[in-house]
């Protein structure tokens, strides 16, 4: 048990001050704007909850919400199993293989986000792109501009390319923290590989995997720059996700409505974080490890 000492606050205080300054204060400031019509910042006009009502009653909002949920669901159901599988295979590999694969797979994480769509648009360009020419040669009529399904495929593949490394790193971190004694015990009990996975590896990976799930959920749910650059929400709003609408509104300097939208989205984030916390706390004791 950790000693109880409130002087520890002094150590945490600098971090809290900065987070307050760049996180909490801006949100407080903007809450004010969300209740006003601001033709310019010096000319506020109180409109109450009008902006919020506009969001909550608009069908577009729910359509985008649904698309964002669908996108996150697809992304999670591909990236989590794939990442866990790669991590499981890595665990049985030689050290050199492990570091090579980890280095390779994390490379897309260091690509600036505005360049990821540029790289992919270049790659799937039917005239000059490797993948684009390959598809044309195979006779696939690939058209990410006007075919909604194809835009979705590009987005999902691109997102997987971008983020698979994070899932693999986290999953591998979870697996490699399992002491060998667990596997020895499993071998004595003649456990099958599935049983080893189900009853040893998965429970031991739970904390890092829930973290990976949370990060991947939130980032895909609010995907912005990448999706915008690929097809600007098109074709026909088929890829208009939540963030794209907010981005659009901020770009056109509609202070009031975009402030209200920011607050609504932040409340969604807060809810997700709270659900995550509630879900992991009930499983708390299992995740608590003796100090290594």
């Amino acid at each position: 048990m950790k000693p109880y000492d409130n002087r520890a606050w002094f150590l945490a205080l600098p971090a809290l001050v900065i987070v307050t300054f760049v996180g909490i204060l801006p949100l407080v400031a903007v809450t004010n704007y969300s209740f006003q019509d601001l033709f310019s910042l010096s000319n506020p006009y109180w409109v109450g909850v009008d902006w919020y009502r506009n969001i909550v009653i608009s069908e577009r909002f729910y359509a985008s919400l649904g698309r964002s949920f669908l996108f996150s669901a697809i992304v999670l159901s591909i990236q989590l199993p794939l990442g866990i599988w790669i991590a499981l295979l890595l665990q049985r590999s030689h050290r050199f293989v492990v570091s090579t694969v980890l280095v390779l797979i994390t490379v897309p994480l260091v690509v600036p986000w505005n360049m990821i769509p540029v790289i992919w648009l270049n790659f799937i360009n039917p005239n000059i792109g490797l993948a684009g020419r390959m598809l044309a040669w195979l006779g696939v009529g690939f058209d990410y501009k006007f075919n909604a399904l194809h835009t979705w495929i590009v987005l999902v593949v691109m997102d997987t390319w971008h983020w698979l490394g994070l899932v693999v790193v986290l999953a591998y971190a979870g697996i490699s923290s399992i002491p060998p004694a667990y596997y020895q015990a499993a071998a004595i009990d003649a456990a099958s590989p599935w049983q080893v996975f189900r009853f040893i590896q998965l429970p031991k990976m739970k904390t890092v995997l829930s973290m990976a799930m949370l990060l991947r959920f939130m980032d895909s749910f609010m995907i912005y720059i990448e999706a915008f650059r690929i097809n600007a929400g098109g074709p026909n709003s088929a890829t208009a996700f939540l963030s794209l609408e907010l981005g659009e509104e901020i770009q056109s300097f509609n202070y009031g409505p975009s402030a209200a939208r920011s607050i609504v989205y932040f409340l969604i984030v807060l809810t997700v974080a709270w659900i995550f916390k509630a879900a992991t706390i009930t499983r708390g004791p299992a995740a608590m490890e003796p100090a290594k």
Partner: peptide, 9 residues
């Protein structure tokens, strides 16, 4: 986990 676009304004 707050997306940057939410904090940008």
């Amino acid at each position: 986990i707050t997306p940057t676009v939410v904090l940008s304004l």
